[in-house]
Nucleic acid binder design. Sequence first.
DNA 1: GGACACTGTTTTTTT
DNA 2: AACAGTGTCC
Length: 782
Amino acid sequence: MATKNEILDLRKKILDDEYSHLNKEQREAVFSNDGPLLILAGAGSGKTTAVISKIGYLIRYGNTYNSTQSDATDDDKAYLEECLKDKTKRTEQRYLKLMASDPINAYNLLAITFTNKAAGEMRERLEKQYNISGDKLWALTFHSLCVRILRRFADRIGFQSNFTIYDDTDSHKLIDSIIKKHHLSENYNAKVVSRIISAAKCKYVSAGEYVHEGRDLQQVPMIYKEYQAELKNANAFDFDDLIFMTVRLLSSNEEVRKTINNRFQYVLVDEYQDTNPLQYRLVSLLAPTGKICVVGDDDQSIYRFMGASIENILSFERQFTDAKVVRLEQNYRSTQTILDAANAVIANNEGRKGKRLWTDQGPGHNITVNQLNTQSEEGEYICRSIMSGKGTHGFKNNDFCILYRTNAQSNSIEHSLRMNGIPYRVFGGQPFFKRKEIQDVLAYLNVICNPYDRTRLLRIINEPKRGIGDTTLDKISGICESTGAHFFDVIANAAAYPELQRSSEKLMDFARTIKMLSDKSKVVTPSQLFTELLATVRFEQALRSQYDLTEAISRIENVHELQNNILEYEKNAEEPTLLGYLEQTALVSAVDNLDENEPAVTLMTMHCAKGLEFDVVFLIGFEEGLFPSAMSVNEPGGLEEERRLCYVAITRARKQLFITSVRSRMLYGTPRPAIPSRFLKEIPPELITEVHHIQQEIQPPVRRSKPMHERALLTNAVTVIPKSKDTKTSYRAGQKVKHKVFGEGVLVSVTEMSSDSLLEVDFATAGKKKLMANFAKLMIIE
DNA sequence: GGACACTGTTTTTTT
DNA sequence: AACAGTGTCC
């Protein structure tokens, strides 16, 4: 009889061999499945590889590594010894029978990620490396997971499964209407109230339980209660409620909880440092037996403002008994210089789990630091650096990434990139979906799915104009108030209410349109319905009559772009539905659309960049008041959060890091003096090469008598920029340019004006147009 | 009901 | 500088 230890030892050797592509710590993370596990994964430490391997392992072997049961014979032992030497044997039934202990079905695994992109990548890699079908295993974000659960069990908490999702704009609108109704506009701001309510929800404090502190805003509990009543009446959830109500559902309904727990036998949570107490509750409900692995990095917790609690990861070991912690500190991404800088900066924080990144790659390039006078110089400097990086190091456009603290900073950089003909993509801000015409069409689609969605119904009931004014709407609200009827039902039966006599035809006509489209939506594809909708409400005609030709064209283009977006969705979704599409538009994150292969420089906020990596990273606007932000420095813990953000930003870079600041920054349209960020001083000086941006015109041949150090300075400078006379001279007649709406065209003439240039462009499709250079945002193609 | 001018506010980060 | 919200007039 082979002893238990002999067999265990043999198994360990085989598994170490099979997972030899991982380092020791990663293997430990893969093999530790006895109880709750926390993987403390530093930036770039191969965490995704470890997680993918772990899932593969759980599905193939279950919990072999630590399995104590063993009744193997000597013959089994000899067989395993053969398997150790001969890999091909490891597909045999007997091998698996000896090695596996409670393997988990992919169907019974749940992986929660931070973005849909991360979830998609996980599914892809599992499919490719372990042949695990992506639709069997649920890899989702917190929000999309909750939508799935709620769609199935909505009736248990008094909702219908065709519920719609309110984004921030929608909830602000709703809260604002409640504030107005109670004549509280003087002292109550929808945004502020919405934040308070959201913060309460993130701590799982319901409207009934909420107790307001402080002397101001005493009416918040009342608004909170009404807001929840309105949401329920509208059959809608806001972002927080998606999770809140799922928690409520699981904790109050044993049958549902059993169904869910039966399905999910092992739960993985990524980016655990960014979860909030509400999400913690959800996680504990999903993994009551401690079959759970969370992955995170306390140093990368940057979403406190969204209610994320760094406490979740810091106290994981207390919250989940017998938890094990594995640290991944070897970095496979960056040079030692970049890691040293990151380590040095984050070392200034207190209350960390503690961790030090290292790599066996060399030191690489020093970090390049430059202080410029203005934002346009900053932009120009970056463009020059990109161009020289492409020339001397052979980098491609998509190897570069520009990161900033606030979205507003993208403007000036975009301008420089356009002027230099460098293709780029901006992420975040999501201006497209915020456009009025897009919001309007989406509101229609939401109402078609869920006619009780009152906020969106109000948005479109008179858009395009159909003669239904405020007076009528007030009357309808009054009827709803006194009878408890739904807004839509009142409209649909307008003739039954004498006070609505004058507009009853218009109202009922509108309701019939919605009803008709709603019926249709059950039999046609989302894109077909979209076409039908535009035709029925004569949307394009309305845009044409409302705006002048150029603007109408641009808005119609946007609507068509939305149609493409729907088609794209239909192509990718396994089971495309209108509700599914709307869900996606509500829950997409900025980076979900990032295509690493698109040949363009990437622009985004440091927050957005979490989880991404680029060869060359530019961190811009390193100035006091901007980064760290002025608001954060007075807040307890605010500075440490900014520093973590700085750590995240630095560790995005693989090979080269550039950091810039300016002396004069525009704020609210006026220039303000700025001094370099304190974070720059936290980077050890020996890691930094300071580049001095040279202000003079390029001088013809350097004079012999020039002192050596000044010459060195000149050659050291990555760029020598002619004094920025004005960037508009970059436009020349004959250039090929591209406009976001009009497409490609040729520049016919350039007329200099006081602060701008008038451009005449002959577009291939749209014909000749006159545009202002600063406004048109043209991209120079050649 | 809509067009227009004027005012005040905004910039921290987002599922 | 850009934009949303408000007020005024038609």
